[in-house]
Nucleic acid binder design. Sequence first.
DNA 1: AACACCCCCTGTCGGC
DNA 2: TGCCGACAGGGGGTGT
Length: 287
Amino acid sequence: MPELPEVETVCVGLAPYFDGVRITQVEQRRANLRWPFPQNFPARLRGASVTRLSRRGKYILAPLDTGETLLMHLGMSGKFTVAAPGPGASGHNSAGTGPHDHVVFHFASGARVTFTDPRRFGLMDLFDSSAPAGHRLLANLGPEPLEAGFDAAYLAQAFSTRKMPLKSILLDQRVVAGLGNIYVCEVLHLAQLSPLRQAQTLGTKRQAKRLGRLVEAIQTVLRRAIAAGGSTIRDFATAEGGQGYFQHNFAVYGHGGEPCERQGCKGTISRIVQSGRSTFFCPACQT
DNA sequence: AACACCCCCTGTCGGC
DNA sequence: TGCCGACAGGGGGTGT
């Protein structure tokens, strides 16, 4: 499920358990997730401390004091669960024993963090922190949508020659990092733009206003979702990491056949398929 | 360069 | 109840 807001929530939730705490042991239960784990994965983590957990697009980065950085991606179904030490559950619960619990990090604090991923589209890798280009999977990522530099002028340039539909181009992580299927649908609805519209039809000076609206919609949708995720963080140690992702209120995603909730709009939400993935939108108010 | 497909894998849900 | 296909939030790789 994880798109930028969920990954951000997970990252913020995990930081207290990772940052500055020594990793005492890593259990790696299988040889691969999406790709093979790096050679000697547990040994390269054992004894290391994470400097500061961070996020880039949908990736979680854990720079270590060994000179390497741990790169993690949740794929479609990846989750982290924390078993914190304490009077109650310390070391005596069932965390880390499920069939899809692939990695368990043990910390000097006594906390354990388990990575669970039934579909195994997630990944973990290690790379040299001093490598100029970083990891190859990070090298071509587009700008962070909530940081400076992501604006109408940038999108105008990125869209100018592209015939792809808006839905597809916004899913392209090289154009902007972190949007996924759900939030692109939500963004386009808020911006009143059709997912079918060709990107280049917005990539002109004349369309600057629409592009501004799109940038604003992206930032609004992401900020709202992060705020909603943040409210579940206090349960992070006891609940499934990211439990409640689907409790967000989506205006269009998963609402095919229902009336459009935009004030004054009498349209009905449609579900179509674009590049093999569901798109939900209102044909009446999104043009 | 810019697409359209295909694949990876498991779980869940709706229809018959 | 059981079976089967469709579908699920990601993204890399290949072929046109």
